[in-house]
Amino acid sequence: MKRPNPALPSLLVFAALVVGGFISMTVAWRMAARTLDVSIQLPALISGGIGGLVLVVVGTALFVVQLGRLRAADERAAMDEVLDRTSEIVQAMRAARGAK
């Protein structure tokens, strides 16, 4: 019996990082756009803009890597299934040959 997707919580967290990054960039843009004061715009740009960009990049990278690991695990599981079945077939053939 298959257990529920073990990667789901981590995929959700990484997706939340990406969404948080976009929200951070949006907030930074709004803060920077509503004033002409460079001393306010610069922290907004650095903390919100660059910080948001880092969140998006890191979140996307982790998400893609985790998805790749999940697919690799599925592939390994499928391969194990094939090998198990093959082994069963081979054993069944040996048993049939021994009976003759």
Binding site: K2, N5, P6, A7, L62, R69, A73
Partner: peptide, 16 residues
């Protein structure tokens, strides 16, 4: 977040 990520990225993801 860091331990969670490390744990998530190293755990076995096979569903069987």
């Amino acid at each position: 977040l860091v331990p969670f990520t490390i744990r998530a990225m190293t755990k076995d993801l096979s569903r069987r």
